[in-house]
Design a binder for these strands. Structure first.
Lengths: 246, 246
DNA sequence: TAAGTAAGTTGGACTGTACAACTAACTATG
DNA sequence: CATAGTTAGTTGTACAGTCCAACTTACTTA
């Protein structure tokens, strides 16, 4: 026989009955939900419960929880459900970030979490009482998080920054209508560095991702053209990054 | 109390005893191992066992298996172990690809796999008898795979192509010493399109990722300079993609 | 009416790719 | 021994898009 049993490969027995009677890791899904408000990148966090036997009581954590094999068809549905429960938002940008699994990350035993990251416009959300936005200063969060959620968040921030360098991801952080300077500001907030105005405009406008609406944003100075996202839903990939610093 | 119990959030009870007595998904790790040989991108596959109760008997599948909570400290270690077992290679390029989990992907029950992808030089490997290299034609594999491994492989190919467009990843597919035209050929094999010679050379040489060795590759025509990878281990990210087709 | 401010445009310098023609170094062949 | 063939590697012009900086435009406020 060419192949070996998958369970046996791991040194674990598969009984003749077909039972898979070896210990299984805990399986969770966590979601890193980003938004922009107050000129800051913000992440949605919830407080851990204080009950008996609860790990990391009262610490902040990413919203998430165990996969419910009866309720969740797949991982993405589970992540979307958790996002919906916490923010009320249903169709945001939702991307898988990666998975973290080890013997030590959860004191209750070997566990693996599937992490997702979502981008939503701040105004679109109606939070549950236990959830709140926490600002990210200089690419870092001040608070210490439960489990390895600090690592996961750091990884999400890095991924976001990386992709913002050469994609239209920030568009998903914008309200329905926005101006080009608004969008540029969001890019600058995420990247934490200024971008060049004319190159930015050229790039975005030639990407065919937004369209002008017949309105201007009026303010104390020259009015700005309002735009909205085209209905493409897919992010745009640019062939260059913005001029990287250094 | 601000937070709710993670298990309760999923509608699952956490007993007062602290037991986590609800059904857990199966947890596996699979590895997509790429290599180049015969001017083709190749992926390492193993044949599924034919035993009773075995899903997808005799079909080809990605090497992988259940996480062993006693043996595997974390997911990456588990992936590295599987790579080592199948190919003997210990320090390749190994990156997490993503995770796939659903009620339906494994007939034995709700399961989630953590997929990794690895790049190794073909000559570096000593395969176990059940493993073999399968060529990828035009970005696709001919054979049908077990589970959702076809999806996972397609995703790995797409990720590889994407990254090859703007990183030095193909360097990890090269033998210890290679020429610039060798490297270009590998880029072209993965991208499945020709690249421009002078731009390719400029880009690679200015990336400071390889260094010449004091030898030439001799053949039936003009000798070519041999190079080797510098000991950086980290891949290089270019600020532009190669000129994309279309 | 002038000053202030942010929106949006314009033009020259620069960087790196695209394309194509070129030179260089070797082998094989008549 | 000369010449054709092949691949390595270079060079030069065109072009695209960013960088930088100055400029015009449209509005508010004093």
């Amino acid at each position: 026989m060419a192949g070996k049993d998958r369970a046996q490969e791991s040194g674990q027995g598969l009984g003749k009955s077909g039972h898979l009677d070896f210990p299984r890791p805990l399986t969770t899904v966590d979601v890193v939900i980003f938004s922009i408000s107050g000129d800051k990148l913000q992440v949605l966090l919830v407080q851990r419960p204080a009950g008996e036997g609860e790990p990391f009581p009262l610490l902040l954590a990413l919203p998430g929880g165990f996969v419910d094999v009866a309720k969740d068809r797949d991982l993405a549905a589970c992540a979307a459900r958790k996002l919906k429960e916490k923010t009320g938002v249903t169709s945001p940008y939702l991307e898988q970030l990666g998975s973290w699994g080890s013997a030590s990350r959860d004191p209750r035993g070997w566990s693996a979490t599937h992490a997702y990251f979502a981008l939503i416009p701040a105004e679109a959300s109606v939070l549950t009482p236990d959830a709140r936005w926490c600002p990210i200063h200089g690419g870092r969060l001040k608070e210490k998080l439960a489990f390895d959620h600090g690592d996961i968040l750091a990884s999400a921030i890095q991924r976001l920054r990386n992709k913002v360098e050469y994609t239209s991801l920030p568009a998903y952080l914008m309200p329905a209508e926005f101006t080009l300077p608004d969008l540029q500001r969001v890019y600058e907030i995420v990247l934490d560095r200024p971008l060049e105005k004319s190159a930015f405009r050229t790039r975005i406008l030639s990407a065919d991702m937004i369209e002008p609406v017949a309105k201007m944003r009026r303010g104390p100075n020259r009015p700005a053209q309002l735009y909205r996202l085209k209905k493409s839903s897919e992010p745009v990939y640019f062939v260059r990054t913005f001029n990287p610093p250094e």
